Lab assay of single mutants.
Amino acid sequence: MATGGRRGAAAAPLLVAVAALLLGAAGHLYPGEVCPGMDIRNNLTRLHELENCSVIEGHLQILLMFKTRPEDFRDLSFPKLIMITDYLLLFRVYGLESLKDLFPNLTVIRGSRLFFNYALVIFEMVHLKELGLYNLMNITRGSVRIEKNNELCYLATIDWSRILDSVEDNYIVLNKDDNEECGDICPGTAKGKTNCPATVINGQFVERCWTHSHCQKVCPTICKSHGCTAEGLCCHSECLGNCSQPDDPTKCVACRNFYLDGRCVETCPPPYYHFQDWRCVNFSFCQDLHHKCKNSRRQGCHQYVIHNNKCIPECPSGYTMNSSNLLCTPCLGPCPKVCHLLEGEKTIDSVTSAQELRGCTVINGSLIINIRGGNNLAAELEANLGLIEEISGYLKIRRSYALVSLSFFRKLRLIRGETLEIGNYSFYALDNQNLRQLWDWSKHNLTITQGKLFFHYNPKLCLSEIHKMEEVSGTKGRQERNDIALKTNGDQASCENELLKFSYIRTSFDKI
């Protein structure tokens, strides 16, 4: 039985969820670079991206490699990797027998973001014989899940209580170790020597080791999670996991709180800001991140802002960003909400898709409305799209047979046209069989910064309504002859009103 693990408890099935942008060198404390989270699957090609990484700022997932063999891993080693800020997950990587050479110096898994409450997941690794993470000293947050690894031993010899604050939620089941077939031998045991430290858990006094050649490092209890030197002297209180010299914040392997210019500090002093819960960055760093993602459509890219001495992905609820200094300031009234469309555009074809934009005031991208039916549609669209004030790209209304009016965009005031449909149009209306009105132009103002209007096959939309939009939106004169079809717009509506004058002759039985 794995020490510190839980057996036999019912657990939810383990679901495996399925960018080499360097964020800056980590400095003297770390020998390499800070790398983003990685999802490495199918083959070993991307694994080489770990070569210079000291910190993975995010998670590391290595999974679904069915053609790899043990010899493929023999020359692979990433000794610079010290810390993973989120979680480490391995799933069905064939041929991998140990992690001792792959990650010989991995010391800390912070667990800032977890995989279903777990910071370390080893699942269905069919050839893994031992973990071998002999320098792993601290899992700051989260638990361990090690399950269905039929060859995995050296679990009962690990004292997880020396690595985690609590072992109650560890789930370590259905491994070879369960069948008591392992016969784990710690260093020196074969020669009758006791080389590794022994600890007591559940009444068992057991030597602690990761492999037959690597003991588990056990520091004096007084050192807590700070770690200790090879001689057993406690590291500085700002260290986490390990250090090369005692009581020196510049000799830590990793930091308990924050890293700044080669030393570990309790908090980031001005003019620095907390970033990702582990390091200090200056304003320029946060500003660069903001600008890199301002026009990016890459998933996970955030326009970072500053709030409460932190550089964070977005302002919290009730705050909006001051564009001059990136500071989050309290909103006066309802907060603006910028919604970034991942692929640059979004099609609204149902109430469900409209709900995804609920509360958005600025759309960074283009909207395509293609709704053919739905219950209580006008009210639903207004509830979900009615706060949109600005669209950076274009607005396209296409084959939306259920629409009679666009009044559900009740606050839309600006279409920038930074991206144009077919390279020309910022407003595009095609084949809307029941569209009769755009907006009530006596109450609604709309500016279209650039781009043209396109109207074709809107049989109940009168040309007068379209011409009014040209005047109000500032697009009059931009359109070419064929942009607004004269014969297919309003051709099934009563669009022309003329005053009919009647004269009559009164007659009676005795007068003409």
Rank of each mutant, 00 (worst) to 15 (best):
Q204G: 04
G241P: 01
D248A: 06
S112W: 12
G32Q: 15
L289H: 13
G37P: 08
C252T: 04
A156R: 12
N175P: 06
F91L: 02
R256A: 07
L106N: 02
G227S: 13
G32P: 02
T229K: 10
I56L: 13
E124P: 00
D248S: 12
R69H: 10
N195F: 11
C186N: 00
L76T: 11
A119G: 14
V121W: 03
G227K: 07
I56G: 03
D169F: 14
M38F: 03
N135D: 06
H59V: 14
Q61F: 11
L60Y: 00
E51L: 08
T267R: 08
V265I: 13
F258V: 13
V55P: 00
S98N: 08
D247T: 07
T157Y: 02
C331V: 09
F116N: 03
R263C: 06
T194F: 11
S77R: 11
P336S: 12
E124Q: 11
P269T: 08
D169P: 12
Y171W: 04
I139P: 00
L60F: 04
Y319A: 13
D288S: 10
T45V: 07
N43K: 09
T107R: 02
A119E: 00
D247Y: 08
D75F: 13
C268G: 00
H59L: 02
G188W: 15
F123A: 01
M125S: 05
T68M: 07
P31Q: 15
F258Y: 12
H212G: 09
I122W: 00
E33S: 08
M137V: 11
F275I: 03
E124L: 01
G132S: 05
L89F: 03
N149H: 01
H212K: 14
G241S: 14
I201H: 04
C239M: 00
I146V: 15
N105M: 05
T320N: 14
C280E: 00
L81S: 00
N105Y: 10
N117D: 02
N105I: 01
M321V: 08
C264W: 02
Q61T: 03
L102T: 03
N242R: 09
G188T: 05
I222V: 13
N105T: 07
T85H: 07
T194M: 15
V305Y: 03
E238W: 06
N242P: 07
L96W: 02
D165W: 09
